[in-house]
């Protein structure tokens, strides 16, 4: 199983914890170009995409917010809700019409507090997602397609 699939909530969380989490999920639909959250805002929700794509971006004055990464089906949107100070580090916007599971961050954090085993499982899952995204960001930092990285017989 490739990381992108293995890190999806339904694979990454043991069945019992996954089911508990899904019980508090809401179905959410967003039209294209909906802002899900804004950099610096209070991280009170998160989503798992079921259809469509969302872009993580950063506010830069005087230009369109540059996109840092695109997230697709199965991806977790938002992790700042799990760690203090619960403030979004980036912004997110739907790039297509999006169907998603929406979760209330406060409720899930309370579930984590009340059931340390559930809490560990959720933290482990989100930690792995973060590690994967860090890895991808580092790879892109290498600028492999730059002048001396290109492969194949030219």
């Amino acid at each position: 199983m490739p990381p992108s699939i293995a890190l999806r909530m339904n694979h990454a969380l043991p069945a019992e914890h996954r089911d508990r989490l899904l019980r508090v999920a809401r179905e959410a639909h967003f039209p294209q170009d909906t802002r899900l959250f804004e950099e610096g805002g209070h991280a009170d929700r998160f989503w798992i995409l079921r259809d469509g794509t969302a872009a993580l971006d950063l506010h830069v004055p005087g230009r369109r917010a540059p996109v840092v990464e695109t997230l697709g089906v199965g991806d977790l949107v938002g992790w700042s809700w799990l760690y203090e100070p619960y403030v979004w580090q980036l912004g997110a916007r739907t790039e297509t019409p999006v169907r998603a599971f929406e979760f209330d961050a406060v409720a899930v954090r309370l579930m984590c507090l009340n059931d340390p085993e559930f809490g560990r499982a959720v933290e482990h899952w989100v930690g792995r997602v973060l590690a994967h995204r860090l890895q991808a960001a580092r790879t892109r930092l290498l600028d492999l397609y730059g002048p001396y990285g290109s492969g194949g017989v030219r």
């Binding site: 992108s4 996109v67 840092v68 990464e69 697709g72 199965g74």
Partner: peptide, 16 residues
């Protein structure tokens, strides 16, 4: 500024 497409590693496209 004009790019409206995906941003990320090419392997992420394999999911689609």
């Amino acid at each position: 500024q004009e790019w409206r497409g995906d941003v990320g590693l090419v392997t992420t496209l394999l999911d689609r």
